[in-house]
Amino acid sequence: MGAARLVRGTTSIVVILVAWQLFAGRIPTSLPFPNVVDVAESAYDLAASGDLWQATVVSLQRVLLGFSIAVVIALPLGLTMGYVGLLERFLDGLVQAFRSIAPIAVLPLFILWFGQGDVAAASVVAYAAVFPILINTIAGVHSTETRLVDAARTLGLGHRHVLTHVVLPGCTPQVMTGMRLGMGLAWGSIIAAELAVGAKTGASGGIGQLMFISYAYQTDVSALIVYMIVVGLLGFGIDALFRTFGRKWEPQRRSSS
């Protein structure tokens, strides 16, 4: 399968790139549309200058901060909600209500409260990531084999130790899934937030804002496409990281019986 697959895959990518190179000039847009070579040159220039790296670091830091907040909130809450049925019932309505709101929709509120800086951006990220982690953690707790909980209880474990030593490791695969989904949303949200804030003032930093600047002020379409590629690469890299981690935990999924 390997060779034919590789040839076909490469063919279709090459065809697309050639088509882009040939027809770029004919795309009817308000600005001249760059061809492949333009974008490659632009990528080289941007990589050489420090701006792109700096913006990337800013965006990544925000994602990391917001995502950490989401984990710190969602993981213990999800464990407890999954373990204590009444608490789950109690919070169910609120969780359903808030998770239905697209995370980016609350950005203006966070900007109003926290200003246009990192805090608002990280808050949106946290909002985006918290629900997938929470919901998957709860589901993970439910799927923990009740026998294992029983076994731990008859071995003399209190509720707190059952949570940390049985339920938590038992639901790790689902928690990883939740984190992966949450990270995907978080990465989308940070770009959206930076784009939107960039549209408003132009003083926030981050790769999303660079995109907005190259669209609105510099009208540099080549750079814009380079930024898109960087966003894609980073998104892919982050996801791959989570997948590798997730696989690491996979053997644990094997049931005890």
């Binding site: 990465w187 784009l195 995109m211 814009l224 966003v231």
Partner: peptide, 30 residues
């Protein structure tokens, strides 16, 4: 064969989140 042609393209484009397309779409579509 169709899968082999399509899948790599999809896997390359897919990680670029929809939101990252917004500025480019603004240029093309307004």
């Amino acid at each position: 064969a169709a899968n082999d042609f399509i899948e790599p393209v999809v896997e390359i484009i897919r990680p670029i989140s929809g939101i990252a397309w917004i500025p480019l779409a603004l240029i093309v579509l307004g």
